[in-house]
């Protein structure tokens, strides 16, 4: 059994719209004298909240090692297919040769990126982070394709909890020095 709600008929004044118009004008007038919320952008910058997802960047560990090993999981998981990695082998003369694999090139097309953060979530090496950069500018399409060098420049260094590869290297050295195999 549906309940019928009586709709109150409009009074004459309401039918003229005028009281409502006056009420509306009052509200807008009050608003005009309230403090402004505008942020004077280039001079003032918004505070970046915790967990903000800005431009994806590649990071180094505190020892300066480039963390990405080009496992291509981010490339796989990226919904808009913005990431493109050219895998490569780390040369013998490099200090991180024990990591064996690193990206020859790492491209993120910022015109495609949707800042979903899935690359950060999937990264097994904690090498890609969406940090606090939100301003992406350029005048050509090519400029929006960020390459490895730029991504590392933007990413900088972040603290590392594991030092997985350093531990591995130390273990190898111990083994070579006659320790446990």
């Amino acid at each position: 059994m549906s309940k019928v709600v009586e709709r109150k008929p409009l009074t004459f004044l309401e039918k003229t719209y005028l009281p409502q118009i006056v009420g509306g004008l009052k509200i807008t007038l009050q608003n005009a004298f309230r403090p402004k919320v505008t942020l004077q952008y280039p001079e003032e910058r918004p505070p970046i909240p915790e967990g903000y997802r800005g431009v994806p960047t590649l990071v180094r560990d505190p020892n300066g090692r480039e963390k990405c090993v080009s496992c291509q999981l981010c490339e796989f998981v990226c919904p808009p297919k913005a990431i493109r990695i050219t895998p490569g082998e780390i040369p013998e003369e490099s200090e991180s040769v024990h990591v064996e694999k690193g990206p020859e090139d790492f491209e993120i097309n910022m015109l495609r990126c949707i800042y979903c953060g899935m690359c950060q979530e999937v990264c097994p090496e904690e090498a890609i982070f969406l940090q606090d950069i939100y301003s992406v500018v350029g005048t050509t399409r090519e400029e929006f394709v960020y390459h490895k060098q730029k991504l590392y420049e933007l990413g900088g260094t972040l603290p590392d909890e594991h030092y997985k590869w350093d531990k591995k290297k130390a273990a190898t050295e111990r083994a070579a020095a006659g320790g446990h195999h």
Binding site: N31, A32, R34, P35, K36, V37, T38
Partner: peptide
């Protein structure tokens, strides 16, 4: 200008 004032902008 007035529009922005009414909308809380500058």
């Amino acid at each position: 200008k007035i529009a922005s004032w009414i909308q809380g902008r500058i």
